[in-house]
Amino acid sequence: MEDMTHVDRTMTTQQNIKISAKDVQVYYGNNHAIKDVNVEIEDKTVTAFIGPSGCGKSTFLRCINRMNDTIDVARVTGDIRIDGEDIYDPKVDPVQLRAKVGMVFQKPNPFPKSIYDNVAYGPKIHGLARNKTDLDEIVEKSLRKAALWNEAKDRLDSPGTGLSGGQQQRLCIARAIATAPEVLLMDEPCSALDPIATAQVEELIDELRQSFSVVIVTHSMQQAARVSQKTAFFHLGNLVEYDDTDKIFTNPQDPRTESYISGRIG
């Protein structure tokens, strides 16, 4: 697996830009949480955001699908573009944006509904299926992509909350990809999982790269090294360094990155 990702990494460097951020600032009330972040995220790539807790990596992630809108005191300035379109343009409907930019959260949060309804929820609200057969197909496809189909196909009607932690998180991933997003944001998706479930989800992330641009926030450097091709290091609200993952981990340019990688801060 280590070899494979290494080969992929060299292949993906020439991809086109999916998300570009310029001079992004985020304030929570009077707290300046994100300062001057500039980053360009490539399509069909796994990009990892790493950094000590409270460094703003999750906050920045939540800017990309405007989840920060749901927090009253949060204020975002600057320019974030997806496929060249400013997502903070007043004409943009966050609802449409979020259909395009899916999100998986830190703790598995399946709805108190059946497994089927959990996955079908997104397609239903966005009207992606013309009929029941369509919907069944989407659900199956998503569950298969999330590597959950074999475990769940016989219990589609049982509640999603009855699954194990790792299965729940894969259900949430299936739920997110059922809406056919172009970007998938993952906010520490493995922090609540045990090592085996983590390995399964990481494997899944690598497969998802075929279809989506994946951005993953993680507090685990090993995880970043395992799954990502590009890595961004955040510290105290600043984007300190952004480069190919192997470069960050073997030859960081900034002394702060170096300290973090070697375990002196964080």
Binding site: T70, P110, F111
Partner: peptide, 27 residues
């Protein structure tokens, strides 16, 4: 009802009212 439930729905592109009617109220 945990905020994570709402985030999950909003993150999928549901409107707040869809979130309330289909996720929060059933929960």
């Amino acid at each position: 009802v945990p905020q994570a439930m709402r985030d999950g729905s909003l993150g999928l592109g549901a409107t707040p009212s869809e979130t309330i009617r289909q996720v929060v109220i059933p929960a």
